[in-house]
C-alpha cells in the first residue's frame, strides 16, 4: 500500500483537504433541504464565494477580509434563491440551476472587469497551514489532521455544531418540521417563510466557507469554474449521508478519499475517470434503495401556500 499510495499520512492529509469543501457545502445543503428548499445551486454559491473571497483578499491584502467578502456573497446569492423559491414561488430546481449559471457567467464576467484577465486571478493572501501545537506532533495522524488551514478546523467544529443545532435546539426542530410538515409549523404560529429563509441563508454561508477554502485554502487564486462539480458532489454527499450531518460528513470524507486516491494512484492501476465517477454512482445506488433507502424531507421542493 505504502509503495502505491505514498505515505499513509499524506493520503489522510489530502483526503481531509479534498473533503473539507465537500463537508462544508453538504452541511449547508442540509440546512436548506431540511427546511424544504432544494438547493442544487450549491455549486454556484461555492463558486461565487470563492471569487468574492479572492476579491476581498486582493483589495485588502488580508485573508480574513476575503473570508468576509465570501460569506457576504454566499449569503446574498442564497437570499436570491430564497427570494425566488420562497417568496416568488419559482421552481426550486430552476432557480438553483439559474444560480449556477449566474455564478459561472458572473465570475467570468467580473474576473475580466476587476482583474483584467480571463481564466485566473492574481495570487492573493490565503489561509496558510496552521499547525496546532501538541496535536500536530502525534505521529502520522497529527500532521494530517492538525497541520491544516483554519477553515479545516472550522469544518471539524461545524459538523457537531450542525448536529446539535438540528437535533437539540428548538430552532432545529422547527427547521426540520418546516421541511416535513409545514402546515403544522404554520399552525404552531411559526412562519414557514422565515424558517425557509434561515435554512437557505445558512446554506449560503456554509457553501461560502467551502468555496473560499477552494480559492484561499487549497489554492491562493481564483480560476474560472474552479468548483468543477464539487457543489454537486456535496449534494451527493448530503443524499448519500441521508440528510444527516454525521452521515453527510462521513460521505464527504469518503468522496474526498476517492479524490485523494485519484490524484495519488498510478494511472494504469485503475483509470482515474472511474474513481471520479464513484461519488455519483454511489449516490444513485443509495437512491435506488440498495443498503437502506435514502428518504428526503417530505415537503421538499414544494412552495408553501397558506390556506
Amino acid at each position: 500500500m505504502g509503495e502505491i499510495f505514498g505515505a499513509p499520512g499524506e493520503l489522510l492529509a489530502s483526503t481531509i483537504r479534498f473533503a473539507t469543501p465537500l463537508v462544508l457545502a453538504a452541511l449547508g445543503g442540509m440546512f436548506s433541504e431540511r427546511s424544504g428548499v432544494v438547493n442544487i445551486g450549491l455549486e454556484g454559491l461555492m463558486l461565487i464565494s470563492a471569487f468574492a473571497g479572492v476579491v476581498g483578499a486582493s483589495l485588502s491584502g488580508n485573508a480574513f477580509v476575503g473570508l468576509g467578502f465570501a460569506l457576504a456573497a454566499g449569503l446574498a446569492f442564497a437570499l436570491v434563491h430564497a427570494l425566488m423559491c420562497v417568496t416568488f414561488e419559482a421552481d426550486q430546481i430552476i432557480s438553483g440551476t439559474a444560480i449556477n449559471l449566474l455564478a459561472l457567467g458572473g465570475t467570468g464576467f467580473l474576473l475580466v472587469v476587476i482583474f483584467g484577465t480571463g481564466g485566473t486571478s492574481p495570487r492573493v493572501e490565503g489561509f496558510e497551514e496552521l499547525p496546532i501545537p501538541l496535536l500536530s506532533d502525534i505521529p502520522v495522524v497529527g500532521p494530517a489532521l492538525f497541520s491544516q488551514s483554519l477553515l479545516v478546523y472550522l469544518m471539524y467544529l461545524l459538523v457537531p455544531v450542525t448536529f446539535f443545532v438540528l437535533f437539540r435546539t428548538p430552532f432545529g426542530l422547527r427547521l426540520r418540521a418546516t421541511g416535513e410538515v409545514p402546515e403544522a409549523v404554520d399552525t404552531a404560529g411559526v412562519s414557514v417563510t422565515r424558517m425557509r429563509y434561515y435554512g437557505v441563508a445558512l446554506s449560503g454561508l456554509l457553501a461560502a466557507l467551502g468555496g473560499v477554502y477552494l480559492s484561499m485554502g487549497l489554492l491562493s487564486a481564483f480560476t474560472e469554474n474552479m468548483t468543477g462539480g464539487r457543489g454537486f458532489i456535496a449534494l451527493a454527499a448530503l443524499i448519500f449521508g441521508r440528510w444527516h450531518p454525521i452521515g453527510a460528513a462521513a460521505a464527504a470524507l469518503l468522496f474526498g478519499f476517492a479524490q485523494a486516491v485519484t490524484i495519488q494512484a498510478p494511472q494504469d492501476l485503475i483509470p482515474q475517470e472511474f474513481l471520479q465517477m464513484l461519488p455519483y454512482v454511489l449516490t444513485i445506488v443509495v437512491l435506488a434503495g440498495f443498503g437502506g433507502r435514502a428518504i428526503a424531507p417530505a415537503a421538499i421542493g414544494k412552495p408553501y401556500r397558506k390556506e
Binding site: F88, A90, I94, T97, L102
Partner: peptide, 11 residues
Amino acid sequence: AVILLLVTATK
C-alpha cells in the same frame, strides 16, 4: 441566468 431565474417566478 437572470432569464432562467425569473421565468418561473409566478408570484
